[in-house]
Design a protein around this nucleic acid. Sequence first.
DNA 1: CTGAAAGCGCTAACAC
DNA 2: GTGTTAGCGCTTTCAG
Lengths: 338, 338
Amino acid sequence: MAITLHDVARRAGVSIKTVSNVINDFPHIRPETRARVLAAIEELDYRPNLTARGLRSGRSGAIGLIIPDLRNAYFAELAGAVMTAAHQRGLYVLIEQISGYDKESELAVLRGPRMQMVDGILHSVLTLDDEDAGMLDIPTPLVLLGDRIYGGPTDHVTMPNVAGARAATQHLIGLGCRRVLAFGAHQDEVAGSAALRLRGYLEAIEAAGLPVRPELIVDVHDWHRFDGAEAMRAVIASGLDFDGVVAFNDPLALGALRVVQEAGLRVPDDVAIIGFDDIDETRYSLPTLSTIDPGRDEIAEVAVGWLVERIEAPRGSIAPREHETQVRLLKRESTTRS
Amino acid sequence: MAITLHDVARRAGVSIKTVSNVINDFPHIRPETRARVLAAIEELDYRPNLTARGLRSGRSGAIGLIIPDLRNAYFAELAGAVMTAAHQRGLYVLIEQISGYDKESELAVLRGPRMQMVDGILHSVLTLDDEDAGMLDIPTPLVLLGDRIYGGPTDHVTMPNVAGARAATQHLIGLGCRRVLAFGAHQDEVAGSAALRLRGYLEAIEAAGLPVRPELIVDVHDWHRFDGAEAMRAVIASGLDFDGVVAFNDPLALGALRVVQEAGLRVPDDVAIIGFDDIDETRYSLPTLSTIDPGRDEIAEVAVGWLVERIEAPRGSIAPREHETQVRLLKRESTTRS
DNA sequence: CTGAAAGCGCTAACAC
DNA sequence: GTGTTAGCGCTTTCAG
């Protein structure tokens, strides 16, 4: 059996309350008493039982992080940033992946037993949209990540999806591209990153006075490297003519980059390619990949900060807030024509 | 305040024990009583308080996973595999990253407050070695991942580091390479993946009757893509002559791959390159990267299975076991000469 | 400044 | 089959 407060109290010749006071840095303790308690803690190698503390105080000291998939580098990097921000505040992070690409799976995780014991939840929205805002009005403090829910009941930390995709598309048009692929669309959806990035693409095309060509909008359902490669293979096999690619995330872009070059096209001279998210890998592909920096550390820092505020404030006392990070276009070799 | 067992019991007109019995699928409950309780649970939307259950039962339902760094794709992919294996057994996973590259940081995580509330720990060893085996004799069930501790007090699931590196090196020698770089060594260490992979390299060089050239052993401390690129830049700047690279992990190989090609060398014709770990990305680089498959899913499955056995068995009743996955050499373009 | 006692929500003995 | 009771280890009143 582990050492408890009682053992320490007995050893130090005080009551458990005094030990508890010392541990929790209560003021008004005589220095010699404190020293005696500290010595007892040291000698017995006492560690407080966090479960018991959690039961009594109603706080677990954990926050939940719900993300689509750790194998996606963007989310792994985001998870790392969230863990760093949380640890600085003495919290630990319970990561959950959304098992399926549908609303039921997503809500199941949010309401599941695992998220029931955390003090607050950071939820990177995958399929939920404005219609589902009501489902998010849960008792646990919640901060949403990613672009999808507007007018929701809680805080929302986003990256500038529309503006980012618009900037990326404008950049390619500025390079002289006239047949730019929107690569990774989900045309059956009205909200979500895919829809917003497509909107940014369309805005840039129209602003430049170019025609919107439906055949240049390529749907790719999953956003892994593999899917980008497969989709690009199909595009090339179809004989479609194109000279630029705005990929809706970096793995898609990297998969496409590979296949484009395999087909004998030069990047960026024949085809310019730009991604989205600035995962580490984009700095070391050949050629290096231009991309949109979503401000990952800033997202993590703001989101954790707001979540902590919500955990500490009475429920309902904080009105929904929104934070959008700054767009940063990172120009690398895949869009630098000599 | 949340709904408790008492609320359900009152609603159903039974005692809390009966409700508890229903929830825990005890036999010997009259069907109509069970139905009444279930209805009350439904109506009140009751969810058991896992913290209270944990305090009472001494089990939290969580296992800890200690890994060096989530930003490293290998560990992110491993974490995903571990979460899958754990969820199948109804456990959740608490991931912790080791903050610094030293024994103190590593032991601090292992003994820290967060790992104190889990039922068992999966620890992917970073800097600890045989000397530290004693430090691992902790009360919490523990299964070690990665190659380093021999004769330790607990189970150990490893990948064949020596054999893998030997196979990789032999593969390059078979291609005709005579000056093969060992890329990513930590020559100040005697244990750990770096030391084992170096040993495999040396074994293959000697078995082939080639001279061991110290200048071909390149130390690279961190194993990120960036470090691989920087180290390869230095190698090329130094004018060192080489025709093959056995990189000790995939990001190192990918960083090197990039810089080698930038310098005008062709891969695999001038320089053949092979990595280690089979991260997803190796399938989509240009050229695709040959690598060693460490059997990630197998590692996760065996490790979680053994950990669960240890959690359920009395402490000390299971003798230390070892499991080593099979070597699989994946030949891709970076080592396929026409 | 420190001690005694209550109780967070649940499970596990043991009655009935 | 079901109810009663105790207590997991801690924090939190409330006395003293």
